[in-house]
Computed example of a mutant assay.
Amino acid sequence: MKVKNIYKSYGNLQVLQGISMHCEPGEIVGLLGANGAGKTTLFKIIFGLVQPDSGTVTLPQHYAKPLGGIIEKPGLYEYLSAAENIRLFAGLQGINTTKEFIAECLLQVGLDIQRKDPVNRFSMGMKQRLAIAIALLNQPAVLVLDEPFNGLDPVGVTALRDLILELCEKKKLAIILSSHITEELAKCCHRLYVLKGGKMIHSGPTQDILSTHTVGYALYGKGISKAKTLQNYSFKVRGQMVWVAIGSDKISKLLQDLLTEGINIESCIPDYSMKELFEI
């Protein structure tokens, strides 16, 4: 899928200004931006729900359903069960359903095929999974997910992220994923686009973009607060965690020096500067 030079305005408000991006089969592309950056408007243009002022969207050909996805929030019939939602949406797309087909749709997103209760009793994570199952009906080439981690607890975020990675690997989908949560995009996206005020200010391999804007690392490990190696750096102690002001180009040496000192680092989490990342 390719988006080329998209412009969109509402009156005097320029929502999108010359946006271009692409996503290939078997690739997860992240769209990072604060609320109001233009992410949802771009997705609506991709789905043909909004007409751009100029620019083009090129979708994969020879697919019964080039696109599937969720924009803003899952659009489900919450008084129906998961299976009934699958049956209804499949019928709208001209798909004949059987019990086996519906069970397969639910199982591929990790939902219990035995549940008969209405969707309004589901957690947000379960609703997201059901919406993805519906988006995958008719086997689309591209899956678009707009802020899928919103409203999820940490367990739900991890489970949904694992599902997205699995779909990309097994089905070779092209997946476009938007979020304002940098850490989640960092964990699953091959490439990243950064949107600010309707302009694309960064694009490229995810780790390349984020490492350039890494200002420090949170290190967890027994006895780390007493490590002599840290005296060579600017750091702050917070219980069993130490935050160290250090760039991505120097973290490997720090970890090696700590290991030499006998400090076993259990986790090393990068800290990105949002201010620098969103500077033009």
Rank of each mutant, 00 (worst) to 15 (best):
Y63I: 09
T214D: 10
G91D: 03
S203Q: 13
T182C: 05
I71P: 12
L219V: 02
T40F: 14
P60C: 07
M200V: 12
M124K: 03
K170P: 06
K2L: 01
S178V: 11
Q51I: 14
Y10V: 14
R191F: 10
K73V: 05
D162I: 01
C168K: 13
S81F: 05
F149C: 05
H213N: 01
E279H: 15
K116G: 10
T58H: 06
E24F: 14
C188S: 07
L192T: 05
T182G: 01
I71H: 13
F43Q: 08
M200Y: 09
R129T: 00
N35M: 04
G36L: 04
G247Y: 11
A218T: 12
M126S: 05
L167I: 02
A159L: 00
N232L: 11
N35C: 06
E84C: 04
V144W: 09
G223K: 00
K187M: 05
S178N: 08
M200I: 11
G11A: 06
C189Q: 00
G91R: 01
I19F: 14
Q14G: 12
A227E: 09
L254C: 14
L16Y: 03
L76N: 07
Y77G: 13
E261Y: 01
V244M: 08
Q256Y: 12
I269T: 15
I246H: 07
R129V: 05
I46G: 02
K228P: 08
D53V: 06
N12L: 13
V119E: 02
V15I: 09
L13M: 13
G55P: 01
N96G: 03
H62W: 06
S203K: 14
S81Y: 05
L219E: 14
Y272F: 15
S20G: 05
E27T: 06
I280S: 12
D117P: 03
V194F: 04
S248N: 02
K44T: 11
S267I: 00
L163E: 00
T97F: 01
I28T: 07
E100Y: 07
A64M: 11
G38F: 10
